[in-house]
Write a protein that binds this DNA or RNA. Sequence first.
DNA 1: AGGCATTTAAATGTCTGACAATTATTTTGG
DNA 2: CCAAAATAATTGTCAGACATTTAAATGCCT
Lengths: 241, 241
Amino acid sequence: MKNAQPEKSLSAQIADAIRTAIVDGRLLVGDRLPSEAELADQHGVSRATVREALKRLAAQSLIRTERGAFGGAFVNHLSYDEARAQQVTTSTLLLGMNAISFQVACEARYALERSCTALAAERRTDALLDKMRVEIETQSAPDLSDEAFCASDVAFHRALVDCAGNEVLSYHLAGSVEAMQPLMNMITFTARSRAEIIDLHRAIVAGLELRDVASIDRALATLEAYTITLGQSVLKARATR
Amino acid sequence: MKNAQPEKSLSAQIADAIRTAIVDGRLLVGDRLPSEAELADQHGVSRATVREALKRLAAQSLIRTERGAFGGAFVNHLSYDEARAQQVTTSTLLLGMNAISFQVACEARYALERSCTALAAERRTDALLDKMRVEIETQSAPDLSDEAFCASDVAFHRALVDCAGNEVLSYHLAGSVEAMQPLMNMITFTARSRAEIIDLHRAIVAGLELRDVASIDRALATLEAYTITLGQSVLKARATR
DNA sequence: AGGCATTTAAATGTCTGACAATTATTTTGG
DNA sequence: CCAAAATAATTGTCAGACATTTAAATGCCT
């Protein structure tokens, strides 16, 4: 069994040691780490090296630091929002760097989204349905920018996954769908295509209201097919330009 | 519009600036950043501060550093494996810290997994089916440790999502499912329960072979219900102990 | 005793300058 | 022409210093 990285930098090694302690539960949420000076002593390195290690952990939101007396580095309580923000950053970058075709991205997005329809139909609340109706209203504004339309679209689908009433599922789905948004944004929406999309959004809300899973799935499938068509026409237009 | 963090540390600000440049595409994969000394000059800070900023970015796999002449910090090509590893770290920690009930985790896991069944049935390859059969064989070994059984279970489900033949979907699903494994591991498997699970795995493979989506979904639903039952009995045993 | 201002101490944030270690390139020597 | 040695650029690490922040301790006045 060989070591994967025989000689990582000291700051990376120290970061790994602390990270492992956190993941394994030897350090609990809210625990305070020793001061930088103490850590430097314990590991036999300089304070600068310890600080680089701590910054690595801070970048992963594993710890937070507070200044002043009785400050220091504390094991952070990772919130759903923080975790999702990180997931979105990583995933967005990954997708942006790997020449993903629009069709593959679209297929993945709607496949993921369909995973919550059964639970969403069962558990949808009036508050979330209202939220979705409000977003549909927003999307219907004739002078809305493409950017704002997309933002409202994300909010709409976010509400849809929240309908499933499972916070873990919401976290994963919202992160995944949000990360794909830059790829989805390749499309420019005409008034006509916006109207089509809004109609499908209405169908989704109606399906949720009636707890009719099949109709929601049909609407999502139609939305997927329509989005792919739009994407292809955009690509074709670019190619012949 | 107020600034969220009016005064972040300089190293955090510099890290943000570089991160934004990467995400926005002003820095491309493979590009070399200026040397630490140059960055220090450009931002009017010391080299130590720049180094802390770079370590933050390295922790997110956004850059990699090479030593020596013509070394430096390079914009990293994020691979699916690296991205998934990070996603799993973050998600695992999030789920471990937030008192997620076993039932909620289980429900989310199988909901996500079901999102790929239709595509998987359509596109499954013989190679992946064989892989799944091999894992079933592994799981059938009578002297297998719980740990090894779980590892093989993960590999089996990983192959299932790969059947969908969509790399983006594989990335999201594999990461999500893997992150939930520690929660799933609360269960200790008896010989009897292992046999039940293996039967359901066989049913999944058979369903894929016949491209029978409904039977795969049934098997997954049964697996979900059975897993939740197992989890509840474990919890009950602990409570009365 | 109680409240307010000041001091103090502990910690992180930053800077400076130095040296070690690494590595591609260049030079040198045969 | 090729191999060995010198070179230069760059990151990794260290030591020490000072600035800044913040909670607690202290002291003073009412």
